[in-house]
Design a protein around this nucleic acid. Structure first.
Lengths: 172, 172
DNA sequence: TCTGGGGTTGCGGATTTCGCAGATGTGGCG
DNA sequence: CGCCACATCTGCGAAATCCGCAACCCCAGA
């Protein structure tokens, strides 16, 4: 059993508490391996994960709990919104004048906004919106987003068909 | 216990096997409620879910399994790729000439491509790319995507900061 | 060398998962 | 209307898993 260990646990491996400049904890190889296991199946038993990554069941459990508490990962059910009754989705590109981050914060607080990212492209912000129908979508884009002070202009990309949606980073 | 039931199980509730035109199964209110529970916590015990939605533990288990098998939802760990060692992400807007769907299919098969959606905006396709560094990203965009026959032009939006990422549809 | 703290391990006991057999209910058909 | 076929739900043991806890290990600092 000892022989199945990923590696000798020393040096660069043990520092799962160190933090990089942006405040997010640095992950060691073992935690990464645990995350990979849970990306394949979020309900995989701790014991099975432990066997795969070379740790006891209890150790895996504690690390998973910590990753959850730290917000490094979340274990959730994901669906294609279209099958769950949300008929309209769109990506909205936003041109901002002034403080980009404060606009992003406002978007983050909107429940219809699913995804917000600041970019270095011709848009300052990309936001994904999930709505129940056209009226709802129109309302969010025109009345709620375009109306924000600091939003210079927007461009919308209404979704026609979701082709791929994975959560398998590192598993490839 | 009987009194906690969501509703009298009849009529519009029972047809979880009917399919809408696009081939995706139609979900009834109970399955929706189960999904909501799992969107809050992907590891929530079946018994707890059953209590919440008014079903026995075994029934919940069967429905969850079916939703998984049908591909309606998946239970997985999701992370911010930046904390897991992927330094560069980008959204790529693509202008296509000819068959859009076949291009989308090719993108879907690329492991670096995380998300593919066909849109009705000025781009035909939006694809999200997750890479380890700049070289990798450049390689994927220039050598792999732009090189595809049928791709007329692309525009990239490199991610600077991920502000929001949720999976709470229906929970609001 | 001693001490402190983070991380790991090894345990029971409580809880959950799993498989199965039986009950229930609905739709189709003679 | 009666009856069968099919899908779904329930109840229940057995097995596996989860969970909390105390002991242990190892490295770093005093």
């Amino acid at each position: 059993m000892q022989s199945e260990r990923v590696a000798s646990r020393s040096a660069d491996q043990r520092d799962s508490s160190r933090e990089s400049r942006n405040g997010t904890p640095q992950l060691d190889a073992v935690s990464l391996a645990i995350i990979q296991q849970l990306q394949e199946d979020g309900r995989r038993p701790y014991a099975a994960i432990g066997k795969a990554v070379g740790l006891s069941e209890a150790a895996v459990r504690q690390r998973v709990q910590k990753l959850l508490d730290q917000g490094v990962m979340q274990i959730v059910a994901v669906t294609d919104p279209l099958t769950v009754g949300f008929r309209r989705q769109a990506m909205v590109g936003i041109h901002v004048e002034g403080d980009v981050e404060s606009i992003a914060d406002v978007l983050t607080d909107m429940s219809e906004v699913e995804y917000v990212v600041m970019t270095a492209g011709s848009f300052d912000i990309l936001a994904e919106i999930v709505c129940e129908d056209d009226d709802h979508l129109l309302d969010v884009i025109n009345k709620r987003i375009r109306a924000l002070p600091g939003v210079r202009s927007t461009e919308s990309f209404v979704y026609m068909k979701l082709k791929k949606q994975t959560y398998m980073w590192g598993t490839r």
